[in-house]
Design a protein around this nucleic acid. Structure first.
Lengths: 350, 350
DNA sequence: AATTTGAGTTTGAACGATCAACTCGTCGGG
DNA sequence: CCCGACGAGTTGATCGTTCAAACTCAAATT
C-alpha cells in the first residue's frame, strides 16, 4: 500500500464528506464561519451580497439543508403541526382527506409539516395532545369535528396551547380560533336553486337535533323557505346510514302533501333518499334532491347529485394562517374567526 | 426589598420549574443522575428495581416526556416516517384515508409518527423526498400509487434510503420492499361469487392496459372464467370517470350476446355501470355488478354494491413493520414482500 | 486625533437528550 | 490474597443548529 500525499497538508475534509452536509462543512467550503451560513439562510440582509452569493452557491452545490432536529432543539419550535386522525366513519371522511392534503400544502409554503397521530386511549381523548406537547413534538394543533364540552378543546385552552378548529365553537367556552363553512348559507343556496327550478314544497332531511352542524344547516333551509314564502315540505332526521335516511325519506313521502324536493344534511343522507325514491318507483330529478359536502360519491350516484361544496382548500389555508399567528403568540383577534361561504355544484338531481 | 434566605443554600429549582420537565429536572427530583433517568426509560434492566421505581414515580408525577428534538439530534433518528399526499382524485382516495389512519395507528404503538408532505415541484417528484432526507426530518418513506420507472422509487433506491411501497413493483427495477393486495384473487372471488349465483357470461370492465394494477385484476377474472369453463362476456376499458365507464358498459351491452354480469376494476367504474343500466331501463341485480375497493360509495349506491374489500389495516401494519426493519438496516428478505388476500363484501348488486 | 458608530463577521454557550468511558463496590475463582 | 468480572451509577463529550456577545475595521462624528 502506497500512501500518496498531496501538496496540501490540511486534510481535505470536503471531499471525504460522510453523511449529509452540515452547517460546519458548508462554512468550511465557503471559507466563512458557521454563523454566517446560518445568517445567509435566516437573515440574508445581515450578510454582505458577495459573501451571501458565495455561501448560497456552496449550499446549492452540496445540497445542504439544515438539520431539523438541531434547529428545533435550539429554537424550541418543531415547525410541525399535529392533527389527530379519526377512524374513518361515513361522515366527513370524504372531506377530511381533501382537508389534509390542502393543509399539508399550505404548511409546505412556510416550511412546516403536518404530523398525524391517533387516539391511544378512548377514555382520555386529550392524552395524545398532552404527550405531543410535553415532548415538544409539535408547535400547535388543528382539530376537526369538535363538539360542545370537548375535552380536547378544554385541555388545549387550559394550557394555553396554540390550536385552531375546523368547525366553529358552538358552546359558550369553545375554541377561540376557528374556521368554518356557513352551513346555513349552503342550505339556503340549495333552497334558492330549487325555488328557481319551480319547487315550492321543499323538505329537509337532517341529522339528530344534538348536532349543532346539522341544526345550522336546517335553519338555513327554514329561513330561506320563509324568506321566499315557500312551504316547508316536512322535516325529518336520520343518521348517516343510508338505510336510516331512506326510512326517514319514506316518512316524508307518506305525508298528506309530500314535498317535491328535499334538501339533505349530507351526501350520505341524499344517497338514502335515492334509495327511498327507487323503492317507490319515483325518479330522482322529478323529486329534486340536494346533498351536502360534494363528496366523491356525489358524482358517482345516478343521476349525479347536486350538492353544496365546501371550500376546503380555503378553509385549510385559513386554519394554517391562524395557527401560525397563534404559535407566534399574537393575541386573539377578529381575524381568528373565519366563516367561509359554500357554493352549489349543480348536477342532474335537480 | 428584603431577601429571605432559606435554611438550604441550594436553590430549590424543582419548585420553580419553568416550562416542561427535562431529564435534568427529573434527575434532580429523583436524586439520581441524568443517565439513570435515561436508562430508566430506554434500558430499565440496567437500573436497580428500587431506583427504577423511584425514577418512574417522579417521571409520572411531573409528566415528563423526553424532548423529541433532542433525542432525534443525538440518536440521528427522528422516529418520523414520511408520506406524500396526492391531490385527491377519484381513484384510491377513499382507500387512502383509511390507510393513513391505520398507518398512524401502527406507528403509534412503536412511538413513531407519520409526517405528511406534498409535492412542491411537479417537474421533480423526488424533490420533496430529497429535502426531507437531507434535513434528517424522517427516517423513511411510505409510497402509494407507484408506477414503472417511478422517479421517486429510483431516487430512494439509488440513495439506499429506507422505503416501502403500498403496491408491488411491476417493473424489473422497482421497489424491493412492498405490500400489496392480490387483485387477481379479488376478481377471481368476484367471478366465483357470480358463478354461484348462476351467471355464466361474465364481462370485465377495466382500466387502460397501461395500468399494471388494472391488468392484474383483469387476469384474475380471465383465469377464473377459464377455470370454471364459463364464458368471457366481453372486455372493455375505461377511465375512472363514471361517464366514460357508462359508455364502455354500453358497448358491452351492445354485443350480440350481452353479459349477465360484470366485474369492475373499481367502484367508480361500477358506478358508471349503474348509470348505463339505468339509461337502458335495466336493473342492477338482474345484471350482476361487482366493484373493487369497497369504498364508502359502495354502500351508498342503490342497490348497494357488492365489492372486493382490501384489508387496508393489515396492509398498513405490514408496511410499517417492514419499514422499521429497513430503518434498522436489516437486509432485504422474503418477509419484505407481502401479498395479502382481499375478501368479498356481498351486498345487493349481485 | 481620538472617539463613536455600525456593518459584517466570528466565537462561546446553550438547547436536551444519548453514547462512551469511567468510577466504585462486591463477588468469585485461581 | 490478588485480580478480573460484573452490576449500578456517574461524568464528559457530542449531535447540528441558533442566540448573544464580542470582535474587526473602516467611515463618520466630535
Amino acid at each position: 500500500m502506497v500512501k500518496i500525499s498531496t501538496t496540501s497538508d490540511v486534510p481535505d475534509s470536503s471531499t471525504v464528506s460522510i453523511g449529509p452536509a452540515t452547517i460546519e462543512s458548508v462554512a468550511a467550503l465557503a471559507g466563512v464561519s458557521r454563523q454566517t451560513v446560518s445568517n445567509a439562510l435566516n437573515a440574508p440582509q445581515r450578510v454582505r451580497p458577495d459573501t451571501l452569493a458565495k455561501v448560497l452557491r456552496v449550499i446549492d452545490e452540496v445540497g445542504y439543508r439544515p438539520n431539523r432536529s438541531a434547529r428545533s432543539l435550539r429554537t424550541q419550535a418543531s415547525r410541525l403541526i399535529g392533527l389527530q386522525t379519526e377512524a374513518p366513519t361515513g361522515r366527513g371522511s370524504s372531506v377530511l382527506d381533501r382537508f389534509l392534503h390542502a393543509l399539508s400544502d399550505a404548511a409546505r409554503e412556510r416550511d412546516h409539516h403536518v404530523l398525524l397521530f391517533t387516539n391511544a386511549a378512548p377514555d382520555d381523548p386529550a392524552l395524545g395532545y398532552e404527550t405531543l406537547h410535553r415532548s415538544a413534538a409539535v408547535d400547535g394543533f388543528v382539530l376537526t369535528g369538535t363538539h360542545v364540552h370537548d375535552s380536547r378543546v378544554e385541555f388545549l385552552a387550559t394550557h394555553a396551547l396554540p390550536f385552531v378548529t375546523f368547525g366553529r365553537s358552538w358552546g359558550d367556552a369553545g375554541s377561540p380560533r376557528w374556521v368554518d363553512v356557513d352551513g346555513a348559507a349552503g342550505t339556503a343556496l340549495a333552497v334558492e336553486h330549487l325555488a328557481a327550478r319551480g319547487h315550492r314544497r321543499i323538505a329537509f332531511l337532517g341529522w339528530p337535533e344534538t348536532s349543532e352542524v346539522g341544526e345550522d344547516r336546517m335553519l338555513g333551509w327554514r329561513r330561506q323557505i320563509a324568506h321566499h314564502q315557500l312551504v316547508e315540505g316536512g322535516l325529518e332526521r336520520s343518521s348517516e346510514d343510508p338505510l336510516d335516511a331512506a326510512s326517514a325519506m319514506a316518512r316524508l313521502l307518506d305525508q298528506d302533501e309530500p314535498p317535491t324536493a328535499v334538501v339533505c344534511a349530507s351526501d350520505s343522507v341524499a344517497a338514502g333518499v335515492y334509495r327511498a325514491l327507487s323503492e317507490r318507483g319515483l325518479r330522482v330529478g322529478d323529486i329534486g334532491v340536494v346533498g351536502f359536502d360534494d363528496s366523491p360519491a356525489a358524482s358517482l350516484l345516478t343521476p349525479a347529485l347536486t350538492s353544496v361544496s365546501q371550500p376546503i382548500e380555503a378553509v385549510a389555508r385559513a386554519v394554517f394562517d391562524i395557527l401560525i399567528r397563534a404559535i407566534d403568540g399574537d393575541p386573539i383577534s377578529e381575524q381568528d374567526r373565519v366563516l367561509l361561504q359554500p357554493t352549489l355544484t349543480i348536477r342532474d338531481s335537480t
